[in-house]
Computed example of a mutant assay.
Amino acid sequence: MKVSSFDVNLSTREIQVRGTSVPVGSRAFDILAVLMAAHGQVVSIEDILRKVWPDTVVEESNIRVQVCALRKALGEDRRLIQNIPGRGYRLTPKSETPAARAGIPLLGE
């Protein structure tokens, strides 16, 4: 599945940025898959915790750490993962990121 300048293969759990394979941890990949499945809608912190860590009790800080790793892996496309304060996260098409257009740094950067 193509998202901006990166490709995500859900079956092989691989991310390629501009044709180069980029390693990410399994939890970070799981978060990306959850955000992709939401098709641009906000995914609540609770939903991410429930889907990525279904049988484990973890703190919200784990999400921030994994999102930070994802953003680092995505490089120029890091702004596609948006933090929506008080609500959760979303993966948005590049053309819809007001922070990217305004040059505003995202939380976790």
Results as ranks from 00 to 15, higher is better:
residue 108 G to L: 10
residue 10 L to M: 12
residue 9 N to Y: 02
residue 60 E to W: 03
residue 74 L to A: 09
residue 70 L to Q: 11
residue 1 M to G: 15
residue 89 Y to I: 02
residue 42 V to I: 06
residue 17 V to M: 04
residue 2 K to A: 09
residue 82 Q to T: 02
residue 16 Q to H: 11
residue 75 G to H: 01
residue 71 R to H: 01
residue 48 I to T: 00
residue 22 V to I: 13
residue 45 I to H: 06
residue 52 V to T: 06
residue 5 S to N: 14
residue 21 S to C: 10
residue 28 A to N: 01
residue 37 A to E: 12
residue 60 E to G: 11
residue 19 G to F: 05
residue 81 I to P: 02
residue 51 K to E: 11
residue 105 P to M: 04
residue 10 L to C: 11
residue 41 Q to W: 01
residue 15 I to N: 00
residue 3 V to F: 14
residue 47 D to N: 13
residue 36 M to P: 05
residue 39 H to F: 05
residue 11 S to R: 11
residue 1 M to Y: 15
residue 49 L to K: 10
residue 14 E to Q: 15
residue 38 A to R: 00
residue 102 A to R: 11
residue 102 A to K: 04
residue 96 E to R: 12
residue 33 A to G: 13
residue 75 G to Q: 00
residue 74 L to S: 10
residue 30 D to P: 00
residue 53 W to M: 05
residue 43 V to I: 00
residue 59 E to G: 08
residue 70 L to E: 15
residue 24 V to I: 15
residue 6 F to P: 08
residue 94 K to S: 08
residue 16 Q to W: 06
residue 11 S to P: 09
residue 60 E to F: 02
residue 85 P to N: 01
residue 105 P to L: 03
residue 47 D to Q: 15
residue 67 V to F: 03
residue 19 G to W: 09
residue 10 L to F: 14
residue 89 Y to D: 02
residue 96 E to Y: 00
residue 12 T to R: 08
residue 100 A to F: 04
residue 38 A to V: 08
residue 2 K to D: 15
residue 46 E to T: 10
residue 80 L to F: 04
residue 42 V to L: 03
residue 31 I to P: 07
residue 41 Q to R: 12
residue 99 A to I: 02
residue 98 P to M: 05
residue 84 I to A: 05
residue 53 W to K: 03
residue 4 S to E: 12
residue 26 S to C: 08
residue 106 L to C: 09
residue 92 T to C: 08
residue 54 P to N: 06
residue 5 S to D: 08
residue 78 R to T: 02
residue 97 T to P: 10
residue 80 L to C: 15
residue 51 K to F: 08
residue 33 A to I: 04
residue 59 E to V: 01
residue 69 A to L: 10
residue 106 L to V: 12
residue 43 V to T: 02
residue 46 E to H: 02
residue 63 I to P: 02
residue 32 L to C: 07
residue 80 L to A: 15
residue 69 A to M: 09
residue 54 P to D: 00
residue 13 R to Q: 15
residue 10 L to D: 13
residue 26 S to K: 13
residue 68 C to V: 09
residue 100 A to C: 07
residue 55 D to N: 11
residue 33 A to L: 10
